[in-house]
Amino acid sequence: MLDYNKEADGYDVSRGGEARAEAATRTLLDLIPDTVGRLLDVACGTGIVTRRLAAARPGLRVTGADLTPAMVRRATARLPGAIVRADSRRLPFRGGAFGAVTTVWLLHLLDDADDVRAIVAECARVLRPGGVYITTVDKAAAHDVGSDIDVVLAPRPRRPAADAAGTVTGHATRCGLQPVGRSVFRGAGQGRSPRETIADLHRGWFTMLPPGDPRTEEFAARLARLPDQNRPRPDPTFSVRAYRKPAAG
């Protein structure tokens, strides 16, 4: 996994910046009922989405939580007094404290299936009856847009997706949550170019292809033979799922 203390300063720019954050925020708000009073944004990162959620609905009390100190500092600068440092597997909030809980670009990062289950369970625990849990799913698959880059990378080894929609829905259902909605939004400026993909390979972003591995270099060489080395291919389309905690009684 990336060192997010080191990534924090350049994180937003490398992940679509304000344009992607705006698209994500609009999609989340479409799935969050107007009656929600408190929202928890788990693994809020730099707070780029958290701040937009708070600004879009002045009556919504938004709290962000993240484990990485550098991310917490950046998020706090955006939303002073509303950010806490916390492990998403053990949230420091009482049960039923929030009307909505979000996890945006979190579950795909986890290698341990028990961690995914624990996070979904914690989000369900702190959700009040009638509240909604909203999360991104299938993030890795979103980047497969049918381009020539994807054709080259198709044979690469892949780990099972921790955030596969079916897997996440199974965890949510076991926690008593019911699927209630889904949506998508387009990434902004995140279409891969061959040259950028080669750099990502060498950075270790493809987790089953470590830097220096002969297979990594073979894929890099294939990518280097593609035309238009600097031309970005189409942007990814990200998927979002919503689950509701049944109202008491």
Results as ranks from 00 to 15, higher is better:
residue 1 M to D: 11
residue 2 L to G: 00
residue 3 D to F: 11
residue 3 D to C: 06
residue 4 Y to W: 11
residue 5 N to R: 12
residue 6 K to V: 09
residue 10 G to V: 01
residue 12 D to M: 02
residue 13 V to E: 15
residue 14 S to T: 15
residue 16 G to R: 04
residue 18 E to H: 07
residue 19 A to K: 12
residue 20 R to C: 06
residue 21 A to V: 04
residue 22 E to T: 15
residue 22 E to P: 00
residue 23 A to G: 12
residue 24 A to P: 00
residue 28 L to E: 02
residue 30 D to L: 15
residue 31 L to K: 06
residue 36 V to C: 14
residue 42 V to T: 05
residue 43 A to Y: 01
residue 43 A to G: 10
residue 44 C to N: 06
residue 44 C to L: 08
residue 46 T to V: 07
residue 48 I to G: 01
residue 49 V to P: 03
residue 51 R to C: 05
residue 53 L to N: 07
residue 54 A to R: 08
residue 57 R to F: 10
residue 60 L to P: 03
residue 60 L to S: 07
residue 60 L to E: 11
residue 61 R to N: 15
residue 61 R to K: 07
residue 61 R to P: 00
residue 62 V to Y: 00
residue 63 T to A: 06
residue 63 T to K: 06
residue 66 D to Q: 09
residue 66 D to V: 02
residue 67 L to P: 03
residue 67 L to K: 03
residue 69 P to E: 08
residue 71 M to T: 06
residue 74 R to E: 12
residue 75 A to S: 09
residue 80 P to G: 03
residue 80 P to R: 13
residue 81 G to E: 06
residue 82 A to H: 12
residue 83 I to C: 10
residue 88 S to P: 11
residue 97 A to Y: 07
residue 100 A to C: 13
residue 101 V to N: 02
residue 108 H to M: 12
residue 108 H to V: 02
residue 115 D to E: 15
residue 116 V to G: 13
residue 116 V to K: 00
residue 119 I to T: 05
residue 119 I to K: 00
residue 120 V to C: 04
residue 123 C to A: 14
residue 125 R to D: 06
residue 127 L to P: 03
residue 129 P to T: 09
residue 131 G to Y: 05
residue 131 G to F: 10
residue 133 Y to C: 01
residue 134 I to Q: 07
residue 136 T to E: 10
residue 139 K to H: 14
residue 140 A to V: 11
residue 140 A to S: 07
residue 141 A to H: 09
residue 146 G to K: 08
residue 147 S to C: 03
residue 147 S to N: 01
residue 153 L to T: 00
residue 157 P to Q: 11
residue 158 R to M: 12
residue 161 A to V: 12
residue 164 A to Y: 05
residue 164 A to N: 10
residue 165 A to D: 08
residue 168 V to Q: 02
residue 170 G to M: 03
residue 171 H to F: 15
residue 173 T to P: 01
residue 176 G to V: 08
residue 179 P to S: 08
residue 183 S to C: 11
residue 184 V to H: 07
residue 185 F to D: 01
residue 185 F to V: 05
residue 186 R to F: 02
residue 187 G to Q: 01
residue 189 G to C: 08
residue 189 G to T: 09
residue 193 S to R: 13
residue 193 S to N: 12
residue 193 S to H: 04
residue 197 T to H: 09
residue 197 T to E: 15
residue 198 I to N: 05
residue 198 I to E: 05
residue 199 A to Y: 03
residue 200 D to H: 14
residue 200 D to K: 15
residue 200 D to V: 01
residue 203 R to E: 14
residue 203 R to D: 08
residue 204 G to D: 13
residue 206 F to Q: 08
residue 207 T to V: 13
residue 207 T to L: 11
residue 209 L to E: 00
residue 209 L to S: 07
residue 211 P to W: 02
residue 211 P to L: 02
residue 211 P to H: 07
residue 214 P to S: 03
residue 216 T to P: 02
residue 217 E to A: 10
residue 217 E to L: 13
residue 222 R to N: 01
residue 227 P to W: 10
residue 233 R to H: 13
residue 233 R to K: 05
residue 233 R to S: 02
residue 235 D to R: 08
residue 236 P to R: 13
residue 238 F to R: 01
residue 239 S to A: 15
residue 242 A to F: 04
residue 242 A to N: 09
residue 245 K to R: 13
residue 246 P to A: 05
residue 248 A to M: 13
residue 249 G to K: 01
residue 249 G to I: 01
